[in-house]
């Protein structure tokens, strides 16, 4: 377990409950604690409806937990912070803004002057391979392309923490694999700490330094698996025996 002192984002005994339409409370999260060390890539995996997305929203400061506390950089997190970036399953792009303007949005909201915005958007257009598409509208992009724009938008503020809620969930298997590799390449150019929710075991093992496994509702972390592979990681890793063993271990933990 990572020392709480060195963690950049740290959740302490989080409990959360939903109230459904008939007024009955449903326990979504039960005693969830986790700590993210700076610069690491953590994957969070678990069955559907186990509260992974809720946990991510709590870590982003969007939802206040019933009990427990989230600390970001040593301070209690009570509202969304610019230094924590959240990337959703849906690309959530504004259809009336071009690719350029969509990526620019967080900088605009942060009040960054225009010349600096242009430099930074250009840089991200370059590293996400979107050069040449800056004047396209989201409706003109493929699903993978749109998600790339969403990732560029998530990175534009140079966040310390990047929370991703099944960012490739809406993509087909081929695009998904390719996007995973690209994400690693992009991530290598940043110093961001990543927590990524995913449904795919192989994706988790391929991308992360550490995989956290959650139980069915009410969700809590039942298993933590360290992934020893060095970086950069190539596609050939997917057929490695250690890789398959780790994947099997995680699969066993889920079921």
């Amino acid at each position: 377990m990572i020392q709480t002192q060195t963690a950049i984002l740290h959740a302490d005994h989080i409990y959360h409950t939903f109230t459904v339409a008939n007024g009955q409370p449903i326990a979504a999260l039960e005693d969830v604690s986790l700590a993210l060390a700076p610069g690491t890539f953590t994957a969070l995996i678990g069955p559907s409806g186990c509260g992974k997305s809720t946990l991510l929203r709590i870590l982003a400061g969007l939802v206040e937990p019933i009990s427990g506390q989230v600390q970001f950089g040593g301070l209690a997190l009570d509202r969304p912070q610019r230094q924590i970036s959240l990337i959703f399953q849906k690309d959530n792009l504004m259809p009336w803004r071009t690719v350029y303007e969509n990526i620019e949005l967080p900088l605009q909201l942060a009040g960054i002057p225009k010349p600096e915005r242009e430099q930074r958007v250009a840089h991200l257009l370059y590293i996400t391979g979107l050069l040449g598409f800056e004047n396209h509208y989201p409706a003109e992009l493929s699903g993978g392309m749109a998600q790339r724009v969403a990732i560029a938008r998530g990175l534009i503020n140079e966040p310390d923490v990047l929370l991703m809620d099944e960012p490739f969930g809406a993509l087909d298997a081929l695009t998904r694999e390719q996007m995973g590799q690209e994400l690693l390449r992009i991530w290598a150019t940043t110093q961001a700490t990543v927590l990524m929710v995913t449904h795919s075991i192989s994706e988790a093992v391929f991308l992360a330094d550490r995989v956290l496994v959650m139980s069915p509702r009410p969700g809590h972390i039942i298993r933590e698996v360290s992934i020893p592979f060095t970086r950069p990681r190539g596609i050939e890793l997917l057929t490695d025996t250690t890789f398959t063993q780790l994947a099997a271990q995680i699969r066993a933990a889920i079921h």
């Binding site: 969007l62 959530n92 949005l105």
Partner: peptide, 8 residues
């Protein structure tokens, strides 16, 4: 939600 997450 996206706007809120960006501290708008």
């Amino acid at each position: 939600e996206m706007m809120r997450a960006n501290a708008a």
